[in-house]
Design a binder for these strands. Structure first.
Length: 612
RNA sequence: GCUGGCGUAGCUCAGAGGUAGAGCGGCUGCCUUGUAAGCAGCGGGUCGGGGGUUCGAAUCCUCUCGCCAGCUCCA
């Protein structure tokens, strides 16, 4: 159940991956995989893999093997995990099976017969699946000596599998429940052509290179320490990025009537009881006992923002009230779920709660969408929008739901934003818009959410305003976050840009490199000029060869290197080198300064200095 | 939390019962530097932590903490 979904930070999950697994696990739909070429090849690859495994390890039991996003897996019951050498052997055997071009043959048999068949073959998981379904007749697919319970479809023969590779193995629970025995899962990837496979493998390789945990350490942005798992230590350079994001965010919000607040991190249990977190969310909260009172570290900002709302008696004239808060939150996440900046226990949410009248909803949503486009545009992200509507369990006045969903839809239309509807996927307290972006490697990230709330804050905390008719009325609350969390967002940006941040975000924007000590004075004067202009500039006048210092600046991915020697010192120029390796040549210091300032002010994603 | 893997110098890693190693980084000196690594020398470690086995433990056993992959979870 989705509760208190105050701008959740969960990664977007592929709906396809979900359904392909569910088809197998729960016999949903008519087939075991999407009957399109790519899922079919992947599904067939998983059968070939199972065949290879059965040949090499006759004692393993078969569980399930669906196609998933980018590939396939198969789960086996086996006492020992598969080793990397095992995977090599299995992959080799798969290639032999492909070589033989064995046809996939479909057979039908009564369910009861199938139960006996799989019992006789010693496949308890297949039997369990068969006993759980109510079909009279089921289908099997056979290729060579291998046969599996399966609804297909499959490629005509194993020779149609052209481009695949096994990737990894690990434990996975039978039917996805930690109460069930653990199986051994092997993941593979399969594509229609070798080119697509190569490209996918390149992407995996590239993602590894861009890992923000590695880059964060190498570029001195942030580190994790044993003493506080799931909570980053922001280093000076990482903090520059954090502060620039904050600055940008505040600029945008200040200009749009938001009022920033800051509420306590440590709050008495009474508040959490009032908000319902104590009942529904306690196991994810860090609790502290002092003087016989229990306090909780806030996992969300929303309850406390209502205290700010209630500080005054509100008039309809006060609305909308837009209260923003960069709140530091703590959520207890199970140890095995932490993952760098992507899944943390402490993070800073760029939160805001808008309290408004129902008739103001559309314009408020429109305003939030504008902010989303503005903030994401700066990074070159193209947001996609998902509108989630009333679920069966939705609470509150149906007319209000209707009005709110219309407001959300019209706000999207008004800003000319195409969107996908996720019917019935809204929270019980209101409909929402989720925003997803794709990074440069094509990975999807859910960042912003805009959630309407008729129930949680307004009802539980008894929020009111006095309307024009003198009557007390209930406002609607809008929960929204744009970056989601600074931690996760910086992690995403780090991988998206591979550490080569746009100049406005770069911890060091330029470095002056005097060719030798003879040029030290001029180097310092250039450095001073830029620093006075507000540029984050460094002077590297160490007693090292130019090539050595360039290499270091290059590895640190500094946008600009400013090389100065006798020539430049005479002409009042610098020799400009970009981190891309381009040698731009001599640029007068005046122009350099003006261009740099302009590039930073415009928050350009590309390096523009010296292009004019 | 579960399954498996891994914790050795700031970083990347070698060492697998017998006196803790390398490369890079750091420091010092020489060189006086022109677009991705000049040369030499010197420091640097309770081998994640606790307990055990052993004459002797980085190495074997055990507990624990953390990290990685996947599962589960993600309000």
């Amino acid at each position: 159940m989705v509760l208190f979904s105050c701008a959740g930070i969960a990664a977007a999950r592929s709906s396809m991956a979900r359904s392909e697994e569910d088809r197998h696990l729960h016999f949903e739909g008519q087939t075991d995989c999407e009957p399109a070429p790519l899922p079919t090849v992947r599904h067939s690859s998983s059968h070939v893999m199972a065949q290879a495994v059965k040949q090499l390890f006759p004692d393993v039991k078969l569980a399930i093997g669906p196609a998933i996003e980018d590939g396939f897996y198969y789960d086996f019951a086996k006492s020992e995990p598969f080793t990397p050498e095992d995977l090599n052997r299995i992959e080799q055997r798969m290639r032999e099976i492909v070589q033989k071009d064995l046809p996939f043959v479909r057979e039908e048999m009564p369910r009861e017969a199938a139960v006996r068949f799989f019992e006789s073959r010693g496949e308890p998981f297949k039997v369990e699946i068969l006993k759980g379904i109510d079909a009279l007749s089921v289908s099997l697919y056979r290729q060579g000596d291998f046969v599996d319970l399966c609804r297909g479809p499959h490629v005509p023969a194993t020779g149609h599998i052209k481009a695949f590779k096994l990737l990894s193995s690990s434990g996975a629970y039978w039917r996805g429940s930690e109460k069930n025995p653990m199986l051994q899962r092997i993941y593979g990837t399969a594509w229609l052509t070798q080119e697509e496979l190569d490209r996918h493998l390149w992407r995996l390789e590239e993602a590894k290179k861009r890992d923000h945990r590695k880059l964060g350490r190498e570029l001195d942005l942030f580190v994790f320490q044993d003493v506080s798992p799931g909570a980053p230590f922001w280093l000076p350079k990482g903090m520059v990025i954090f502060r620039e994001l904050e600055r940008f965010w505040r600029e945008v919000h200040d200009a749009r009537g938001y009022q920033e607040i800051s509420t306590p991190i440590l709050v008495n249990r009474r508040l959490w009881e009032e908000s319902g977190h104590w009942e529904h969310y306690r196991e994810n909260m860090f609790l502290v006992e002092v003087e016989e009172q229990v306090f909780g570290l806030k996992p969300m900002n929303c309850p406390e923002s209502t205290y700010v709302y209630r500080h005054h008696l509100r008039s309809y004239r006060d609305l909308p009230l837009r209260l923003s808060e960069l709140g530091r939150l703590h959520r207890f996440e199970r140890s095995g779920t932490l993952a760098g900046m992507f899944r943390v226990r402490q993070f800073t949410q760029d939160d805001a709660h808008i309290y408004c009248r129902p008739d103001q909803l559309q314009s408020e949503i429109t305003g939030v969408l504008e902010i989303v486009q503005l903030l994401y545009g700066a990074f070159g992200f193209e947001p996609r929008f998902f509108l989630s509507t009333k679920p069966d369990k939705g609470m509150g006045d149906p007319a209000l739901w209707e009005q709110a969903e219309t407001a959300l839809r019209e706000a999207l239309v008004k800003r000319d934003l195409p969107h996908e509807v996720r019917a019935g996927e809204g929270a019980f307290y209101g409909p929402k818009i989720d925003v997803v972006i794709s990074d440069v490697l094509g990975r999807d990230w859910q960042l912003a959410t805009i959630q309407l709330d008729f129930v949680m804050l307004p009802e539980r905390f008894g929020l009111e305003y006095i309307d024009a008719d003198g009557q007390a009325k209930r406002p609607v609350a809008i929960h929204r976050a744009i970056y989601g969390s600074f931690e996760r967002f910086v992690g995403i940006l780090t991988e998206h840009f591979a550490g080569a941040f746009p100049t406005w975000l770069a911890p060091v924007q330029a470095r002056v490199l005097p060719v030798s000590e003879k040029i030290a004075a001029y180097g310092r004067s250039v450095f001073d000029r830029l620093r006075d202009a507000g540029i984050r500039v460094e002077l590297d006048d160490r007693n090292e060869k130019l090539g050595y210092r360039i290499r270091e600046a290059q590895l640190q991915k500094l946008p600009y290197m400013l090389i100065v020697g006798a020539r430049e010192s005479q002409e009042g120029t610098v020799s400009l080198r970009r981190r891309t390796g381009e040698d731009v040549g001599a640029v007068p210091v005046d122009r350099l300064c003006a261009d740099l300032v302009a590039e930073v002010a415009s928050r350009s994603v590309s390096l523009t200095v010296g292009r004019s």
